[in-house]
Design a protein around this nucleic acid. Structure first.
Lengths: 344, 344
DNA sequence: ATCCTCCTTGTAATCGTTTCCATGCCCCGT
DNA sequence: ACGGGGCATGGAAACGATTACAAGGAGGAT
């Protein structure tokens, strides 16, 4: 493969000049610029990014470690991160932790070894020592969606409390009183925050959240199924099940159907995280939508700010309730025929 | 950040010995090994992968360029590729082409610049000059799912003809005679192959496939919606619409509902590519399932074979029909309560 | 005791860039 | 005419690892 030396030889110039042309250095003659351009063209030369990175100590690459690629929420987050990063001249390398702390650490280590310029993490685990250490290390880092408290790392996330209050109001308006939640892992911020927000919102209506109506899930469909089976086996099953993420909601839907029950007539279902498919399920699922794409963009900005020496900004964006039919007929007489999420 | 020199100094040895220890070179004393290990531990040293790559001319990284991350089929493919690659000691960098040839080229170029050891591509476009050029270049390459004819590049893919025949038989058995298809872009292999297989399968039953029943989509939901609206506006609309991928099927479902029609009573719907959500739609959608995870694994093996100098193997795996309820009640009296896809 | 071999270690070249510094040149002001 | 200040260019030193080659030392065979 042709190197910069070959270009220099072909252009009859030194490698220094070729490098200057390639990097748009001002102090280079028109003539030299033209000769180099021609030689580059002729040889099909492409600079070796590895060598360049070694020398300049920057890779123009961002790392993104997410907890589960198969979760459409994270997929969309990843897409938006990549798009924004590309617009700013960075590449993105994604590491999928699969909700497993040791895999998460593996990816963090690998990315650090590769000398990425910055790291975007949605921690699968509340207490990874590697993460603490990384946060204190020289590589810029930003948390997105989930975070770890007590670290001096900017956080970009959505706040669900308002939307959860709206959801509870909606459910209460529909006459539901016995409400259950499938929680995420307690080790994640999103895992317990959503439960607490739910509990508080219920409290405002004087509704308690007893322990038997709080199921412990792990953000995967199977756990939603399992927890829901438990709810349904209760002497007094809940009126509505609220799943703390979309995958567990799907599992819950499975469990309800397997039991021969109908949504929403026999039991209601709502989910945190709205995904395009929720429009098409039977029935369409009421959900809390995060501004996923904006989160991705904001995270990239916070990270590049950090990398390029500007003061970074933690961001918290609001989520919003999207009412569909899985908890009973909505209050509005005529449901909007063009659901905003039906635009895939 | 600590470098190999610091380790050497701390251990009282030369960098050469340190490097040897790090790479498991046999000829190094127990004593040296221990001193180096201690120094590495003490300094928290991690080798700089960039420098290593420059010297050894290998990055232990694979590139994967797919057409659309938001398509669950590709997401799962990516996941399986990453897992298998990791098991073999490689990292994976994903490039999302978003079905746009110029973006695809951008990612291919970036990956090549980064000197990845091998490239896995599902071309968004049948005729990218860059792709031809890359195929002839020194970087090992393998096509997965889609491919470009006329290039000496191994192909790992699923064959849908058998399953499409099964689908047509199923539809015919249900009494459907007027069958339409939403095709993918003609520039992709999967785009036209599926139409041809469909046409042939119909032919075996003496059913024609007139031009007005072949809609031109682009593998995105919107195109499915648009094409289906066209079908429904026909003087004689089809009995069943077969979408060549899952996203277009979702668009079709939208269009049908928007028209106030019911699936399968008013019109049937089937899709190529089975995804977990098809179990939960109203009604569950009959689809053709590809062995996605196996495809990913096989692709990684073919690529690493090429990289490591073994003879690579093109692989074609069969797809299979998964009958659900979107084309009418299945023939079997009692539908299987445990749909295989309900395991997310 | 001498020589040969094997094992361990160190010195230094190398990978492909960027960039500091020195050099030569041209042009301008005096 | 001469000095000085750009400007364009080239030579060579990094960046942090791997590895070819050389060399020193221990130990066995003669």
């Amino acid at each position: 493969m042709a190197g910069i030396k070959d270009v220099a030889a072909a252009a009859g110039l030194s490698v220094a000049t070729v490098s200057r042309v390639l990097n748009g250095h001002p102090s280079v003659s028109e003539d030299a610029r033209a000769r180099v351009t021609a030689a580059v063209e002729g040889l099909g030369y492409r600079p070796n990014a590895v060598a360049r990175s070694l020398r300049t100590d920057q890779t123009r690459t961002l790392g993104l470690v997410i907890s589960d690629v198969l979760n459409p929420y994270f997929t969309e987050l990843a897409r938006s991160v990549e798009e924004e990063a590309r617009a700013l001249g960075y590449s993105v390398v994604i590491g999928n932790a699969n909700e497993r702390p040791e895999l998460q650490d593996h990816h963090v280590r690998t990315l650090l070894d590769r000398r990425i310029d910055g790291l975007l993490v949605s921690p699968a685990d509340g207490s990874s020592p590697l993460m603490r250490q990384t946060a204190e290390g020289p590589t810029p880092m930003v948390f997105v969606d989930r975070w770890m408290p007590g670290l001096d790392v900017p956080v970009v996330r959505a706040d669900g409390t308002g939307a959860i209050r709206d959801l509870v109001a909606h459910l209460h308006g529909l006459g539901h009183r016995r409400l259950a939640i499938i929680a995420g892992p307690a080790a994640t911020t999103t895992g317990h925050e959503r439960v607490e927000a739910f509990r508080e919102a219920l409290h405002a209506y004087g509704i308690p959240l007893p322990a038997e109506l709080v199921g412990q899930g792990d953000f995967q469909a199977d756990s939603g199924r399992r927890v829901t089976e438990g709810f349904l086996a209760l002497p007094e099953p809940p009126d509505v099940v609220f799943a703390a993420d979309n995958l567990m909601a799907l599992g819950a839907l499975d469990a309800i159907r397997a039991r021969g029950l109908a949504v929403p007539d026999d039991i209601g279902l709502a989910a945190f995280d709205d995904i395009p498919w929720f429009v098409h399920t039977g029935p369409p699922i009421t959900a809390i939508a995060q501004p996923t794409a904006e989160l991705g963009r904001a995270a990239v900005h916070a990270l590049t700010d950090l990398i390029e020496g500007r003061p970074p900004q933690s961001v918290t964006l609001p989520s919003r309730l999207v009412v569909r039919r899985s908890c009973g007929e909505p209050d509005t007489a005529a449901p909007d025929p063009r659901d905003p999420r039906s635009q895939l």
